[in-house]
Design a protein around this nucleic acid. Structure first.
Length: 279
DNA sequence: CTGCGGTCCTGAAGGC
DNA sequence: TGCCTTCAGGACCGCA
């Protein structure tokens, strides 16, 4: 699912393809997924593309921001030619390589006849038009402010399971289920440990593990596992799913000690870890 | 503060 | 074959 590495990969792609283009039309097929008055950005050029946590913000010349959250199953596809929006790969679950498809809910058209298609099978995602970029409450884990000290403060006052806290966007933004599980595996910390029970050494190790797993995710342009719908705007897949440490690896042997990884539930979410080497 | 359950939605998987 | 039920999951909300 789209977490920081997936969303940042999309942001970088859009940054390379959309800057300076003028928006000439927004087609909203699913009104519940769009908030705000689209007329405010018609005729405006995109000047910058930002990200905060899992949200992408398109900044327009008139300082309006079109923000997008992909939630579980959102996709953003970019076609250089709207009338011939054919992609190299079939779109997952859409059974087609042409857009718009069954799950296309919003279409942005630009002055060079290129287009963005916002697809979402589950319709949990959204686009919002506002005067400011959507800003995650917690510190983005790729920002310079996400220090060991920040992590210590964020987890020191709560007895919730550390894995639940890692996924709390009000504490730190961008980490979802994949990278929370993998970071805890790298740090050899049990996901159910009370957050305020971590030692200073464990906090430092965890901080590095978070950065390592996020950066590895980025390196592979995110995770496009079989049951995920995330793909890049050109329909290419991410490859991090071939490098999962713990996420969805239950039943497989731990690469460190051979113990079979297990699945439990924490905060209502699937949680995966090695019962032997994660303490 | 904390956890729990419900809500949004739909395809996949399992039961019979 | 095919219908029916259950489930996953990010963020949010109400409730105990």
């Amino acid at each position: 699912m789209p977490e920081l590495p997936e969303v940042e990969s999309i942001r970088m792609y859009l940054d390379a393809h959309l800057i300076g283009k003028k928006l000439i039309d927004i087609e909203i097929r699913e009104p519940k997924m769009f908030f705000g008055n689209p007329k405010k950005i018609i005729g405006e050029k995109i000047v910058q593309i930002l990200r905060s946590g899992k949200v992408v913000n398109l900044q327009f010349e008139n300082n309006k921001y079109l923000s997008t959250h992909l939630k579980l199953s959102g996709q953003i596809l970019y076609a250089p030619d709207k009338q011939h929006a054919v992609f190299a790969n079939p779109i997952p679950r859409a059974n087609t390589d042409t857009m718009p498809g069954k799950t296309t809910h919003i279409i942005l058209t630009f002055d060079d006849n290129s287009a963005l298609f916002f697809n979402d099978m589950r319709k949990f995602g959204w686009m919002k038009l506002g005067d400011k970029p959507e800003h995650a409450k917690g510190t983005d884990v790729l920002s310079p402010e996400f220090t060991e000290e920040y992590l210590r403060k964020a987890i020191s006052k709560t007895a919730r399971p550390i894995k639940v806290v890692l996924m709390d966007q009000e504490k730190m933004a961008g980490i979802g289920n994949i990278y929370a599980n993998d970071a805890l595996y790298l740090a050899k910390i049990h996901p159910a440990r009370k957050a305020n029970s971590l030692t200073p050494d464990e906090i430092n190790t965890l901080h590095q593990a978070i950065l390592d797993s996020i950066h590895e995710g980025l390196q592979y342009k995110g995770s496009s596992a079989q049951d995920e719908l995330y793909i890049m705007p050109d329909s290419s897949k991410g490859e991090y799913q071939h490098h999962f440490k713990a996420y969805h690896q239950h039943g497989k042997p731990c690469k460190r000690c051979g113990t079979l990884l297990v699945r439990i539930e924490l905060g209502g979410r699937g949680t995966f870890f090695c019962p032997t080497c994660q303490k």
